[in-house]
């Protein structure tokens, strides 16, 4: 909120307000004119599905099968929902470059519009979680402390206390969470990508998810405080021990060498 009030006198503030007002008006209009909208929606939707299917056929079908039914190289996508597509493609994990223990995060190759189209196509194959809307995952006003407790109960065992990541079996790993957007965190909990289990709204409610996202924003973002100084990666005693041995003891030995060294002698000339 502080940020909002600070920017209220920004030259573009008026423009933002105007756009916002337009959007609200448009939204209200859409809400109050359901018949037309539904009509337009279905057409847009079917268009998106068509476009998405094309994208899918060229980019994904080789592993996931022509109809999303899955092959030996990739799982079935029937029923994974739009949220899974938005997460996997939106974080660059898909399309996969090579088979491995786990699909790593990579630069994203599709535009958001294309991702939406693919998501629409996959969603049409079977019912699954939809892409969450911003008011579902926006952490503003969420309870950070509650989020911390939830994080330690449900997430920290794989992702570490503050989401720095950790190892799983046979080369799999839980990734670090520092530059993951709230939307993608939400989608990951909702869809359980790869080895990660699902945390559905029935067991981790929408508000719980917001709290978790807020906690991560507090402790694991560029702006997170580390009052004591550089956090050495936040991995705990291993990095602390390595640091104490190299820099701590190294500094001590450097000083000891200076203390014990012989002072320069006057040159006999």
């Amino acid at each position: 909120m502080k940020k909002l009030s600070a920017r209220r006198r920004h030259p573009l503030a008026a423009l933002v307000v105007l756009l916002f007002a337009l959007a609200v008006t448009g939204g209200l209009y859409a809400a109050f004119a359901p018949a037309d909208k539904a009509q337009a929606d279905t057409t847009a939707q079917s268009l998106a599905i068509k476009e998405g299917k094309q994208l899918y056929t060229t980019g994904c079908a080789s592993c996931h099968g022509t109809g999303g039914q899955g092959t030996s190289d990739g799982p079935s996508l029937v029923g994974v929902g739009a949220a899974a597509v938005d997460f996997q493609v939106g974080t660059g994990r898909m399309p996969l470059q090579q088979q491995g223990a786990q699909a790593p995060k990579k630069p994203v190759v599709y535009t958001q519009a294309e991702i939406d189209q693919m998501a629409a196509y996959i969603a049409s194959l079977g019912p699954g979680p939809a892409v969450p809307s911003e008011d579902q995952y926006n952490p503003e006003g969420a309870d950070i402390a509650k989020g911390g407790e939830l994080f330690r109960t449900n997430c920290a065992q794989c992702h570490n206390f503050t989401g720095k990541g950790g190892a799983l079996t046979s080369g799999k790993y839980a990734p670090a969470l520092e530059d993951v957007t709230p939307k993608h965190i939400y989608e990951a909990m909702l869809t359980g990508p790869q080895a990660m289990p699902v945390f559905p709204d029935t067991t981790v409610t929408e508000q719980d998810k917001k709290d978790i996202i807020a906690y991560l924003g507090e402790v694991n973002s560029e702006k997170s405080a580390s009052p004591g100084g550089l956090d050495l990666g936040g991995f705990g005693p291993v990095s602390e021990g390595l640091f104490a041995w190299t820099f701590g003891l190294g500094a001590m030995i450097a000083v000891a060498v200076w203390v014990a060294a012989r002072t320069a002698k006057a040159r006999k000339s």
Partner: peptide, 21 residues
């Protein structure tokens, strides 16, 4: 009882692939 919500769990709360404490 679900540790997150403090509510008793029903089977339909728990989809395949989920993890609940």
């Amino acid at each position: 009882v679900n540790q997150n919500t403090n509510q008793p769990l029903r089977p339909e709360d728990i989809p395949v692939g989920s993890l609940t404490f």
